[in-house]
Simulated assay, not measured.
Amino acid sequence: MRHLVYYIASTLDGFIAGPDGADPTGPDGFWPIPEDYIQHLAVEYPETLPAQARTALSVTAEGTRFDTVLAGRRCYELGLRVGVTNAYPHLRHLVFSRTLTESPDPGVELVATDPVAKVRELKRATGKDIWLLGGAELAGALYSEIDQLIVKFAPLTLGTGIPLFSRNATFDPVNWDLTDHTALKSGAVFLTYTRSSTA
């Protein structure tokens, strides 16, 4: 069975964006993106680079982890604001929204139904793992379905902002096993946690 993987960048204090929800990696963003970070993504997670970055870096690797990406409406609209209708044309791209009625791109599938039911359907299909891109609202709704966390911690704190999971997520303590880790010289740390099989 395929796994749902929440692969997300976070600050040390657990935020994925500032309070306004703007793209922290955009032109006016505050997120550090050093060279070794970009190179690590290109080698280890090439399919998670947006198409524009793949072109700029001459990345053609298909990737071995994901063939599907899930995004919430707010997360997806960050790209729309700068004219990007599909940042991941090399993946099956699903956007969960009850307000968007027509997809801005033929390669983007809109899903207005229950996210949990849809993810369970996706897990039963054959293929590579499913990448939960975000944002916090969708991650909160899918909290019970996440099988693995890959958190890219930046050497950065915000004090406040949008957390990994929305404040509306259900209170449900879960134990996770650390299954991989990589520390870069620039200070970024990639931590992979798999949902623990023990209570």
Rank of each mutant, 00 (worst) to 15 (best):
T68N: 12
P46F: 08
F165R: 01
L49Y: 02
T182C: 13
K185I: 12
D20L: 02
A117Q: 12
Y193M: 06
G79Y: 14
S144H: 13
G127A: 14
A9V: 03
Y193P: 02
W31N: 05
V84G: 04
T192D: 05
E62R: 13
E137Q: 14
R195Q: 14
L132N: 02
A183N: 08
G63W: 05
P106M: 07
L100F: 07
W131M: 04
I146S: 02
E109I: 05
Y6I: 03
E145I: 10
L4K: 09
G107S: 09
D13A: 11
L138G: 00
Y6E: 01
R54E: 09
L49R: 02
Y143E: 07
F30Q: 02
P50E: 10
I38S: 13
G26C: 04
L57H: 00
T85L: 06
F153K: 08
E62V: 08
L12V: 13
D36M: 14
G14L: 06
E121K: 07
F171I: 14
L100S: 10
E121D: 11
R92Y: 08
P155I: 07
P155Y: 07
T179E: 08
V5K: 06
I162M: 07
L133R: 01
G21Q: 00
L184G: 13
A17K: 00
E109H: 09
V111K: 01
S144A: 15
D23L: 07
Y45A: 01
I33E: 11
